[in-house]
């Protein structure tokens, strides 16, 4: 039974709460034990610090001049991380520094500071798995707790979770295929990639494969994907697609611009009756 220490750095606690939404949590808790978790039953922080454990979960960004439980946080992190057999960085703050890095440039993640390697990279790269997301999906966290050696991508994200794009499985895919944009917010019809700023086609994540809270995802409820699993989260002008001369500034993952534009020109040449009107007529 692996013993887990859940350490919080500079965070909003979103990952702690997201994790509690894991519907199979009671079963998982039969296989792992939290010696410290910010919400779940566990030891007090100071008592937990005296314990041995196997896995360190880091939630939140890391910074020197900052305290947790009255201890200098970086020192705390280094001590616990060195002690841990494995480290799981949970949420984009622990993975890349995250949103609060916009306020304080010194904040960084366990292995990365945005796209750059952090100063802890060499030290912990061999035992760290990154589960980004704002927040991270509870099933992604559970996956990392159980699978010790998953195949990782360049940002140390498990490929089984992050080789997909958020676009894969989106219920609006037909509209993407035929380049039919959403005419407005609040409609079940239309693709959000052309006007509303959706980053799903080039964002790594399985949000539309492993649904959120087991029922939905941002794009399924008409909200654009904001690219929260990527090192450049959080960007600007989030509800508007960045274009150059009407052409999306970022292409779907791995698709060359010429290929994309050729296909777009062809797709746009047809008006698909079914996709140009409301799905459900009243």
């Amino acid at each position: 039974m692996d013993r887990v220490f859940w350490l919080q750095g500079i965070t909003c606690n979103g990952n702690s709460h997201s994790f509690v939404n894991l519907s199979t949590l009671p079963a998982l808790l039969k296989n792992i034990e939290f010696i410290y978790h910010p919400l779940l039953e566990s030891l007090s922080f100071s008592k937990a610090l005296e314990q041995n454990f196997d896995i360190l979960i880091v939630e939140g960004g890391i910074k020197r001049d900052w305290q947790r439980g009255g201890v200098e946080f970086e020192k705390l992190f280094l001590e616990l991380a060195s002690k841990a057999k494995r480290i799981i960085a949970v949420g984009s703050c622990a993975v890349y520094g995250g949103i609060f890095k916009e306020y304080d440039k010194e904040i960084c993640g366990v292995l990365f500071a945005k796209e750059e390697k952090s100063h802890y990279f060499e030290k912990f790269k061999d035992k760290t798995i990154n589960i980004p997301g704002c927040p991270a999906h509870p099933e992604w966290i559970a996956y990392a707790l159980i699978y010790q050696k998953p195949h990782l991508d360049d940002y140390f994200r498990p490929k089984e979770l992050f080789a997909y794009t958020v676009h894969a499985g989106c219920t609006r895919n037909e509209y993407f295929e035929w380049k039919v944009d959403a005419k407005s917010f609040g409609l079940k019809e239309g693709c959000l990639f052309y006007e509303q700023g959706c980053q799903a086609p080039y964002t790594h994540g399985s949000c539309n494969k492993i649904l959120w809270n087991e029922v939905a995802s941002k794009t399924r409820v008409g909200t654009p994907c904001f690219g929260c699993t990527e090192p450049d989260f959080i960007q600007r002008d989030l509800f508007q697609t960045k274009t150059f001369m009407s052409i999306p500034a970022k292409m779907p993952l791995g698709v060359p611009k010429r290929a994309y534009l050729t296909l777009t020109g062809v797709a746009k040449s047809f008006r698909i009756e079914r996709l140009s009107k409301r799905l459900i007529d009243d």
């Binding site: 939404n21 949590l25 917010f185 609040g186 959120w212 809270n213 029922v215 939905a216 909200t223």
Partner: peptide, 27 residues
């Protein structure tokens, strides 16, 4: 879990949805 799922049915996910926008809701 269920209360959060109830949010997600309309808001896409919980925590950290952005489904309420100026002018209404995206769903």
């Amino acid at each position: 879990v269920l209360a959060n799922r109830l949010i997600a049915l309309f808001a896409g996910q919980s925590p950290h949805s952005s489904y309420a926008i100026a002018g209404g809701v995206t769903c």
